[in-house]
Design a binder for these strands. Structure first.
Length: 466
RNA sequence: GGCCCCAUCGUCUAGCGGCCUAGGAUACUGGCCUCUCACGCCAGAGACCCGGGUUCGAGUCCCGGUGGGGCCGCCA
């Protein structure tokens, strides 16, 4: 297979969501795997709904995911003359004809047919009228009747459609603009697309496009219809679940490599392997391992994969990524990068997203920590005060390394006859304000003597005045 | 409603006629580790939609049913 060329053709009528992102990923991977090229094309022939804002956000999302395109972006709105040219060819060759049926009339017939249980398609009123172009007229494809068109799908095999199921669909609207089917075919043809990899919601559309290739006497590309991504409830993906923009996932602290990893495993597999680097995906990706059944989006698993990649990311790199989230939470960013990294190191195995990591870093960054009321009530009690007093003394002498600190605490536990836990929890609350946190000794080591002593004194003060 | 696609643990999936006593991941439960929570490790529970065939043998092939999804626009 030489000179593979794939494309991703979103219509800029919304943000890039999970389904689109996976389609883009599959196309990109297939192209990369075959050392081919990947084209970005905006299908913006619907002028009513297309927005520049979405063009920008889709580009941004693709870039964030690392799916760089080799060609484009192209805009269908800039290629209108080309579509008209092809439409004219179709009209000239008798493969298409003009239709003057008013839209309201068609709509009425459609509803009527649906209500009485018949096919809602166009009834062919103008098919033999031999009309020329004119105001208010649309151009329709003259679908050969009778006939059958077979889609040779790379994933599903041969799927045949009887032409009685395909109506004479519109190629050119009454305003002269092309509809989806015409534009896609002309674009894929003129851009030299070799493989069309898209959601299987397009499978039923494929015979229409095949008919166009045939009318144009042009060879069609290969088609591969991948199963759709459904919401956790099995219904079509909607805003509620995963149809959220991929940029929203970025905002929530997901890593692009995690999103890619999760998405590539939705419908594609390579034995038992769950974790893939970009290089592995490119090396291993192929159409034959794509599943046929629709997959449900599982936010929990996405979170798990994200947690994995968070842990797998080198701390200095992660520190860079967490910065925007610290700002978002209004936390002071320490000028000492080393301090941030050490703190992050302790939070890394506990966070599932960058946002969570940032939140967990809070007590390292603010000088005045807030006590969780419940935690303070339970652990900052008068009976522990003597121990904290004692600790204050010892801590001004001890070396602030994990081992000496741990030895100090264990010694103190033995001396007082208290369980280590009984001492650790109040100190944890004193230092972090919470009952859960990274390991106590590493926290102390990182915070440093000065901060630790200050927080312990404040805890004692709190106990006295409660 | 017509046509099309699909069907393995809750979810993502492995399986391409005997290797399946159906494997992995995630979620869940229990244990270990332990200063809390995670991480990590160990263990457990959990699926071949139903019914017919074909075959010595079916999760794997065929047919039907059921269920889910998609398409049927002057949207893409």
């Amino acid at each position: 297979m030489s000179a593979v060329k794939t494309r991703f053709p979103p219509s800029p009528t919304g943000h890039l969501h999970l389904g689109g992102a996976r389609t883009a990923l599959f196309n990109w991977l297939f192209a990369r795997h075959h050392q081919g090229s990947f084209v970005l094309r905006f299908e913006d022939t619907d002028r009513e709904r297309s927005r520049q804002e979405y063009v920008d956000s889709i580009r941004e999302a693709l870039e964030w995911l690392g799916l760089e395109w080799d060609e484009g972006p192209y805009f269908q709105s800039e290629r209108l003359d080309l579509y008209r040219e092809y439409a004219h060819k179709l009209y000239q060759s008798g493969h298409a004809y003009y239709c003057e049926c008013p839209p309201e009339e068609l709509e009425r017939k459609r509803k009527e047919a649906l209500a009485s249980g018949r096919k809602p398609g166009y009834d062919g009123t103008c098919r033999e009228k031999d009309l020329g172009p004119g105001p208010g007229r649309v151009l329709r494809l003259r679908v050969p009747r009778p006939g059958v068109t077979v889609v040779e799908d790379l994933i599903r095999g041969a799927v045949s459609f009887d032409h009685s199921e395909i109506d004479d669909f519109i190629l050119l609207r009454s305003d002269g603009s092309p509809t989806y089917h015409l534009a896609v075919v002309v674009d894929d043809l003129t851009m030299g697309i070799t493989h069309v990899i898209r959601g299987d919601d397009h499978l039923s559309n494929t015979p229409k496009q095949l008919l166009l290739y045939r009318a144009l006497e042009a060879p069609p590309p290969f088609f591969a219809h991948v199963p759709m991504i459904l919401g956790p409830d099995g219904a079509r993906l909607s805003k509620r679940h995963g149809a959220r923009s991929v940029l929203e996932y970025r905002e929530e602290g997901y890593l692009p490599q995690a999103l890619r990893n999760y998405l590539v495993r939705l419908g594609w597999s390579w034995g038992d392997q769950e974790i893939f680097t970009l290089e592995e995906m490119i090396e291993k990706f192929d159409l034959s391992r794509i599943n046929k059944a629709a997959a449900r989006f599982d936010p929990e698993k996405l979170l798990a994969v994200n947690a994995y990649w968070l842990r797998a990311t080198p701390t200095p790199e992660l520190a860079e990524e967490v910065l925007p989230f610290l700002r978002k939470l209004g936390l002071p960013v320490p000028e000492d990068r080393r301090y941030l990294e050490e703190a992050l190191e302790t939070v890394k195995p506990r966070a599932r997203t960058l946002l969570e990591a940032a939140e967990m870093l809070r007590f390292y960054l603010v000088e005045e920590i807030d006590y969780d009321p419940e935690a303070a009530r339970k652990f900052l009690t008068p009976d522990i005060a003597p121990v904290l007093e004692r600790l204050l003394e010892e801590l001004s002498r001890v070396k602030f390394k994990d081992e000496p600190l741990e030895r100090l605490f264990r010694g103190l536990a033995e001396e007082t006859g208290l369980k280590l836990k009984k001492i650790a929890q109040p100190v944890r609350v004193a230092l972090t304000g919470k009952t859960v946190s990274p390991g106590l000794f590493e926290i102390m080591r990182i915070l440093g003597r000065e901060r630790v002593l200050r927080r312990l004194r404040r805890a004692l003060e709190f106990i006295r005045t409660r």
